[in-house]
Nucleic acid binder design. Structure first.
Lengths: 341, 341
DNA sequence: GAGAATTTGAGGTACGTAAATCAAATTTAT
DNA sequence: ATAAATTTGATTTACGTACCTCAAATTCTC
């Protein structure tokens, strides 16, 4: 049978109260007694029953998720995952609140974070925008003892505890590797469509992509990056213009959202002129495009994993516990038409 | 505040005991009373606190994992994941026992399953071998009310409750897609190395691989499959022989284990003659080969996910609860040198 | 060695649910 | 209408841990 606190009290020859004091770091225990208890814990292999402990504590965690009001499928999906987490919040002893901010707007984000600070939650998760205001807001959150996690897009210079998202540099490199190999032997231009260079995830993807492409696939000419603000309508217009200007685009890397618009523009091309496409995020439109061959590969970050990981980390940080980095690493999923889930 | 059984008792105007009877399907409640209670549950949005319930029940689940005594890295890794689950068993209210069987031996496996049956665990997980003896053993396990899950390799005709593994057909198709595109434009032969055609996972991978290759990449000639019993030494010998016989092998799909041997054989070739390689399972040797360019892509099934999923399913089945299929789907991970974890 | 300070013990209550007992109330059958 | 059967209520104990109080024992200080 699994040992309980009673067992270690008996084994160490002390009372339950003393075991409790040692276990929960309460004062009033001599060094010698503490060591006796700790030895008993080690010998019996005692591990705290977390479920029972939580039940007894009745602690709940108040977390706030700050999400951009983007209307692309990925952000909508992310929001849904957060909503689902809200739905589970009873079972997980969390109270999760969602607040909205305008996208790509550091000013608005930092103001919102200040507002969140006033409510003193136990933790905050947000999609970062690069800005010194945001950095300052994070610093103040941490000063107030609030756990801070960036979600999807990181803010490395800041005091955030953790980043729940993929390695975007690696994602860009992977995209370049696939695109380069799929185009092996051919000459032509490669285009890139991003959301905004203000968000770190897009910048990093681009960086990784360019470094591999220029190093390993020098026969491919690289066009200047297009910024479409993750908006399908803007993307469609810009990409249509791109194809008009450059008839020899043979590869396209869509590293942001708004794929719906990009794909619409591509589909209006004759089949022979359509480029090899690597896109990000498995949504309804990218999935359909994968299935019918318009898109060749999709790199995906699982929004559900990211949200659940963020919550686990916020809990751990709120309790001052360490996080197991390997367990919280978010993977880059690669989907071809043959391994669609 | 989250409603408790007390709240629903008060709200329904019945006693705690009656609520308990309804909640746990105990007899002795009139239809009308039951409906009152159920309405109160719905109105208040009550959800059972699983942690508290488990604490009160003190139920533990006895599970047995039957693992083949293969000494390739994947099986060793799988075994480690099971051991880790054993380590967590205290916290998860499970008692997991691991037993060994000789690999690729239906007779030995079915005998072992009969032995497991005698101990009447709550559930059994095993790596299937195709054989009618095994089918019969599964039928007897189910008759005895024991939950049965196949792990890594399935046994579809049998009565098993669930398969915890990847879609191997899709994996084979994905491998063919990648290999075909990486070889685009080139002519030559493609070789396949499997463990054994007796295990379903290898057969299915091969099937998927061949169907895509023959359909989408007709310029690639397909060599007969090599069976190396997932043994590095055997694989090395056979692959070395293969290269001697066919100098124009430009692609290789390693769909089983024993990659260590295959890679040794490949490394002994001059660089110019090395084929494009797609392999399965991210192990020390495939990871190293990916990093230095000997292997081009690795398809991986996460053994940890598989084991944890198997345990969740066994628990659910032991309690007669449904499983959420989408949650238990094991993904095919694709690794290139740029997205290694 | 007396007094103060610290350490320890004993015991209780609480968390939310499960499971049991026994008595009381209600319904059903005759 | 009465007995039998069924349904319901009231109450208790338990799971493993947290946290509290108060008294008793031990150690420390001068």
């Amino acid at each position: 049978m699994k040992p309980t606190v009673h067992d270690i009290a008996r084994s160490a020859g002390v009372s339950l109260a003393t075991v409790d004091r040692v276990l929960n770091g309460r004062p009033g225990v001599r060094r010698i007694t503490q060591e006796k208890v700790e030895e008993a814990i080690a010998v019996l292999g005692y591990v705290r029953d977390v479920a029972a402990a939580n039940l007894a504590k009745g602690r709940t965690y108040a977390f706030t998720f700050v999400l951009p009001e983007n209307d692309n499928s990925f952000m909508i999906g992310l929001r849904e995952e957060v909503e689902q987490a809200v739905g589970r919040s009873g079972a997980e002893r969390t109270r999760i609140r969602v607040v909205d901010v305008p996208p790509f707007d550091g000013q608005a984000l930092s103001t919102m974070l200040e507002g969140v600070l006033a409510e003193r939650p136990d933790g905050v998760a947000f999609v970062a925008v690069e800005s010194s205001d945001v950095q300052a807001a994070v610093a103040r959150l941490r000063e107030a003892g609030i756990a801070v996690v960036t979600l999807v897009s990181d803010l490395p210079g800041s005091q955030r505890h953790h980043f729940a998202g993929i390695d975007n540099h690696a994602a860009g490199r992977t995209a370049a590797n696939l695109l380069g190999r799929f185009l092996s032997g051919r000459d032509g231009r490669v285009a890139m469509v991003a959301g905004s260079m203000l968000v770190r995830d897009h910048r990093e993807r681009l960086e990784g992509f360019l470094s591999v492409l220029s190093e390993d696939f020098p026969r491919l000419a690289i066009l200047p990056v297009i910024e479409a603000r993750d908006d399908p309508a803007i993307a469609e217009e810009l990409v249509t213009g791109l194809f008009r200007r450059y008839p020899d685009v043979i590869g396209l890397y869509s590293l942001g959202a708004g794929n719906r618009g990009i794909l619409k523009a591509v589909r209006s091309l004759p089949e022979a002129r359509r480029p090899v496409i690597i896109a990000h995020e498995l949504t309804r439109s990218t999935r359909a495009a994968l299935a019918d061959g318009v898109v060749d590969a999709v790199l995906n970050q699982d929004a559900g994993h990211e949200v659940r990981s963020a919550i686990r980390v916020l809990k751990a940080k709120a309790d001052g516990l360490p996080v197991i980095a390997a367990q919280e690493r978010i993977r880059i999923d690669i989907f071809l038409k043959d391994n669609l889930p």
